[in-house]
């Protein structure tokens, strides 16, 4: 497995983490996450080292319960690790206060969930406005930018619709518009197509491809190889450890065969 991505992370392991963090936007070292379940401890992540460059397009794969969501939540600053380090844009995330984490979630991270997580009673436009509310943006500018983001995902004509008046694919596109509206450095998507049929999934993936082409850093969890094939790099987790970390060759049928 001597790929470019693999080399990068092994090269990084020798340098001090602060130095690496100055060059690479996302750096983790020995990231662990334990869940206490009564007497027993579930070890969801057992020491993960990852580095992700700007404008990378990464798919995270692995069997159910292998720790994919846990890793995404840590990278997205929604959760804090039991031990280990996580540096984002040169900042040690484990040293930050609640409010500083909130600010990072607001400005640096755009999250897309499997279950969309839209406010059911709010219009598409209002849903997309939410991150801007917490960024302290004025009402007029908020509307303008939210409308712009919705047009970007081709929902300019559905702005006043409530989520239950939209199809699954449209809902996920609203969620993507919401994730992008504050121009985050990283787009995180945890099984974004998990609740969609394959045709709708393909539409969502083409939105992601366009975003990546325009320079967006994307990290995406998926169970499906055709979906993962859109990414340039696949990290595979097993039992809380990284099992493999490879560049994809989307057009190469052999790579697909090996993976499956």
């Amino acid at each position: 497995m001597t790929t470019t991505a693999g080399q990068k992370s092994s090269a990084g392991a020798t340098a001090s983490i602060e130095e690496r963090a100055r060059e690479v936007p996302i750096v983790t070292r020995g990231l662990r996450k334990d869940y206490e379940m009564g007497a027993e401890t579930v070890r969801a992540l057992r020491g993960v080292d990852v580095e992700i460059e700007e404008n990378e397009y990464v798919a995270v794969m692995g069997p159910s319960g292998s720790g994919k969501s846990t890793l995404m939540n840590l990278i997205g600053c929604l959760d804090t690790p039991t031990s280990g380090e996580y540096w984002l844009d040169g900042q040690a995330v484990q040293d930050l206060e609640e409010d500083e984490l909130a600010e990072i979630r607001n400005r640096e991270i755009g999250f897309v969930f499997q279950t969309f997580n839209l406010l059911p009673r709010a219009s598409a436009l209002h849903n997309v406005e939410l991150p801007l509310v917490y960024a302290g943006v004025d009402r007029e500018e908020r509307r303008e930018r939210a409308a712009e983001a919705l047009e970007q995902v081709e929902l300019g004509d559905r702005m006043d619709h409530a989520p239950n008046q939209l199809s699954g694919g449209q809902r996920q596109r609203v969620a993507i518009a919401r994730a992008l509206v504050n121009r985050p450095a990283i787009l995180l998507a945890d099984e974004p197509t998990g609740n969609l049929d394959s045709k709708t999934a393909a539409e969502i993936m083409s939105v992601f491809d366009d975003l990546h082409a325009s320079g967006q850093t994307i990290i995406m969890v998926t169970h499906e190889h055709p979906i993962a094939a859109h990414a340039a790099r696949i990290i595979t987790l097993r039992d809380g450890n990284i099992e493999s970390d490879d560049a994809t060759v989307a057009a190469d049928p052999v790579a697909e065969m090996v993976d499956s």
């Binding site: 997205g76 909130a102 979630r105 991150p131 917490y134 960024a135």
Partner: peptide, 16 residues
Amino acid sequence: TREIGLRKALGARRRD
């Protein structure tokens, strides 16, 4: 609760 979680995920601080 879920709405609160979502708002926090989108950048709401405790005070908000």
